[in-house]
Design a protein around this nucleic acid. Sequence first.
DNA 1: CAGTGAGCGAGCTTCCGCTTGACTT
Length: 568
Amino acid sequence: MTKGKGRKKRKGSAEKEGKKKPLLLVESPTKARTLAQYLHGRFVVLASKGHIKDLPPKELGVDLETFEPKYELIRGKGKTLAFIKKVAKESEYILIGSDPDREGEAIAHHLAEELKRLKKPIKRVLFYEITPEAVREAVENPTEIDERKVEAQKARRVLDRLVGYLISPILWKKVKGWGLSAGRVQTAALRLIVEREREIRAFKPQPFWHIYAHMEAGFVARTVKEFKDEGKAKETYERLKGRSFTVVKYVRKEEKKSPPPPLKTSTLQQVANSVLGFSAEKTMQLAQKLFEGVEIDGKRVGLITYHRTDSTRLSRKGINLLRKYVKENFPEEYLPARGRPYGRDRGNVQGAHEAIRPTYPDITPESLKGKIDEDLVKLYDIIWRRAVASQMAPLRYERREVILEADGVKFKAEGRKITFDGWSRVWPYNLKEGEEIPDLKEGDVLKAEKLELVRDETKPPPRYTQASLVETLEKLGIGRPSTYATIISTLFRRKYIYRRGKALAPTERGEQVLDELLKDFPDIFEYDFTAKMEEKLDRIEEGEESYSHLIREFYGNLKPKLEKAKGE
DNA sequence: CAGTGAGCGAGCTTCCGCTTGACTT
C-alpha cells in the first residue's frame, strides 16, 4: 500500500525540468502524509514504519568477546527499504526526520547506513512539533545524526537482549513448561503482581468500629477516632444515646479545582480500562484507527493526534482549536483567560509528540454516532472530553466541614457542593460531593435522630488492574508508551498471570518463575534497575560513559550469576 | 516381506522498542 499514486507522473515531470526533489524520511506513514501537505510538494516524504534494523531473532546476535551487536535488516522490511532506496536514487539529498529521541536516532542511523552508498548528502532534521511553521523551520536547519544517542540505543538494546536471551534458557531448564521467558521489563511487571498477591495472602484484617450520628439537621457525622476495641465502642455508643451535640468547629470555604491534563498513552489506557472496560491492547488498536483516520461522509479524516506519547503537552495550535471550541459552545465563563499548555514544566522537551487530542474538536463524539464503529466513538469520546475539559475554567465548590462534640467524643462530617461546574461539565468522572451540610455556626447545639455502631475492618491492598499496573510501571519508568499494552499481553501469553474479575493475579507458574529469577538474579529485576540503566544511558548521550564500558560492566556482573544458575 | 510400534535423539522456546499491516478469530 506504500505505492504512491501519481508519484510516477510527478517524478517524470521533475526529471524533465531537471529538478530533483529532496527525500524526507519519517517513521509513520500518517505523519508522512501530513508533512507532505505542509511542505507543499517540495519534498517526497516516505515512512520507514518504525525500526528497519534489529538484532537477529533466532540467535543472541552479540559477540560476547567484543560486545559488538549484529544489527540486521528486519524481516519484512525489505520492500519498504527497497522503495525508499529507489526514490532516494532520484533525490537531490536526503533528510531523516525520525522522532527526536533515542530510538528515533537509531532509526536515522540505520537508514543512513543503508542509504550512504547512494552518495547523496544525508542530514538529520528534528521535528519537535508538527505544525507548518515548525516543520518548515526544521527542514531549513538540518543537523547531523547524534552518534552518542545511537550508542545509547545500542546499549539499551544489547542489555535487553542479554537479559532476555541469556536468562530465559535458564528457566527452560529449571521450570517445566514451554517458551518461558524473562526480561528487564516483563519480569519487573510480574514481580509487582506476585508481590501484591503475597501481601494480600499475608494480610490479616483488623476490625475497628465507628459510631455514626444521623443528625436531625439532615446529615451524618462519624467519630473522628476509630475504636479498636469492641467493648469500648459499645460502651461509648450506649453512653452517647440521647446526648446533645455541640458544634465546635465549622468551616465554609470556596475552593477551586483545575481540570485534569489531556491524555497520554498511559492515562488513555487507564481511563479506557476503568471507564469503558477496554483492555490496553484493544484501546491501542482503536486509537490506531482514530489516528490513521476514518471515513466520514466519504472523506478520510485523522481524528486524533499521535497515540503513543509520554507527554501531556499541548501545541499552540491544539490549545487554540480547543479554546475556540469552548468559546463557541459554552457560556463565556467557561473559557479561562489563558490556555493551559501542560507538560512543559519538565524543562527541555524530550520528545516530539504532544498529548492525545482531537485534531478537529469541532467533530464531536455525538456527530460520529452511527457513522463509525461504536467502540471507536466511545474511545474518541474520552479523548475529546479530556482535551476539551483541559482548556475549560476551574471547577468551583464550597467545602463544608463540621466537627461536633458529644460528652467529650468528637464527630466529623464533610461535604462539597459544586457552585460552578466548569470543566466537569465535559469531564464528569470521579467527582465526589459527599454530605450536604446545612448552615451552622460554632456553639450550635444539635440533636441526633439515631446513633449507629458500625463494625468495619482494615482491607488488604487491591490487586492490580490493567489500568493500575500501567500506572505503576510508568511511575517506575519501566516500559515505554509503545509497549505498555504488549507487556500485559506477554504475561498472559506465558500464562504467568490470569484475569481474576477485572484484576490480575499470578498463576502458580508465574510465582515459580519469579522465585527462580529472584533467587539467581536479584539485582536485575529490582524495581529501580531500569531507572539506574536510564541514568547510565543518559551519561552515554552526554559523552561521559561509553557503550563498551557499560556493557562490559553489566556482563561482568551477569556472567558469574549465569554460571552459578546453570550449575544448579 | 510388509506393516507396526517402541525407543531414541535432535530441534524447538527467549528480549525491548519503533511502526504498520497481513493474518486469524
